[in-house]
């Protein structure tokens, strides 16, 4: 499964200039995306997950955004050095994006067929007839019934789930190498969400497209992801395979996230675990571990020095001092330990 990465993000820093000061929205973020895999990025609102991905597409208006450091290698080239003209050739062609709200990403005054063929006609020399044929194929692929009729309809004639399918068809029109999906199912009902996730997985099997899937729904992550990156306060605090993150999480913030979601078997009499407090102000990011103030297990060093990424296992890293060889063994919360025992059999 691990082959050559198609995207390498190295030490990305994104700042926003505001009246209140400079907000350090993305702080030293690095990750790779491999061919044909789905990398899920999870985190609360304001954790920098959307900004990180908008940086890949260079969609952030400058000012107020500033790409303050790092590089985003797509193949051989650094996307941050591309001009706006050059980016236009990449957007929608080699990298495409799906947004949360399908109604705002479609043009309400343009027929669906035109919206799908437009992308192909922009990026490739294709005749209108061939483009239409391809549009029909795409609509079939994403599961839109009777595409011949639907081609000539407007977005308002589609339901929410069908609109999101159209958006996916547009995103796939130019056969992208990388698809960035920013909360693509958050606005949809569970039954529709399940269908859309199935469509995305099917397409990936066919075309080996890599997907970056941004979401805050851990159920969705468990369903779609091969690997997971957990973001907090503009940093990646833990990254690993989906099994690493769900059954052997190491960062206290990951524990907090997993613990605060009731699963269907949750005991009602027990209180839901919450993460006390709220995320730090990123105008003045804390000196040490950004999560220290909300972490009941925090040590002295957590408030003083930012931890590096420690390797837990191959491809599993976490940014917390508790993994330092000299750190005292912290008590892993019972819910989390149970997850480990349940699926790995045995104690840790």
């Amino acid at each position: 499964m691990m082959n050559e990465p198609i995207l390498q993000m190295k030490n990305l820093e994104v700042d926003f200039k505001t009246y209140a000061g400079t907000v350090k929205a993305v702080r030293n973020v690095s990750f790779d995306v491999y061919k044909g895999e789905t990398l899920a990025i999870v985190g609360e609102s304001g954790s920098g997950k959307s900004v990180t991905n908008q940086a890949i597409m260079k969609l952030l208006p400058q000012p107020p955004a500033i790409y303050a450091g790092g590089e985003i290698l797509f193949g051989e080239t650094n996307l941050l050095e591309k001009s706006e003209k050059q980016m236009e050739k990449i957007r929608g062609n080699e990298i495409s994006m799906i947004f949360q709200d399908p109604m705002t990403s479609l043009n309400p005054t343009m027929k669906i067929g035109k919206q799908i063929t437009e992308v192909m006609r922009k990026h490739t020399k294709i005749s209108l007839g061939d483009a239409k044929k391809r549009a029909l194929e795409l609509m079939q692929l994403v599961g839109i019934p009777s595409p011949e009729n639907r081609l000539n309809q407007y977005p308002h004639e589609f339901s929410g789930g069908m609109r999101q399918r159209v958006v996916i068809a547009i995103a796939l029109a130019a056969d992208p190498k990388l698809l960035i999906a920013d909360e693509p199912t958050t606005a949809l009902d569970v039954t529709i969400q399940a269908q859309i996730l199935e469509v995305m997985k099917d397409i990936q099997k066919h075309s080996q497209t890599s997907i970056i899937f941004i979401t805050h729904d851990l159920g969705v992550v468990a369903n779609v992801a091969d690997r997971v990156a957990v973001m907090y306060a503009g940093e990646i605090v833990e990254i690993g395979t989906v099994d690493d993150i769900f059954y052997n999480p190491q960062h206290p913030y990951t524990w907090g996230l997993l613990g605060s979601m009731p699963d269907m078997n949750a005991d009602k009499k027990e209180e839901l675990r919450t993460i006390p407090g709220s995320p730090p102000n990123l105008v003045h990011p804390p000196a040490g571990d950004a999560f220290a103030a909300r972490n009941p297990h925090a040590m002295k060093i957590d408030f003083e020095k930012s931890p590096p990424m420690f390797e837990v296992a191959e491809n599993h890293y976490a940014k917390t001092w508790r993994l330092h060889p000299d750190a005292p063994r912290t008590q892993i919360p019972e819910v989390i330990r149970n997850r480990y025992i349940q699926y790995n059999g045995g104690d840790q």
């Binding site: 039954t191 399940a194 369903n223």
Partner: peptide
């Protein structure tokens, strides 16, 4: 049944097994 079968659980192993039923 259909509604319940559509809910994704925060558990990758059971997610691989889950079969959605339509209505």
């Amino acid at each position: 049944k259909s509604l319940l079968s559509a809910v994704p659980q925060p558990d990758p192993h059971s997610e691989k097994e889950r079969r959605r039923v339509g209505y």
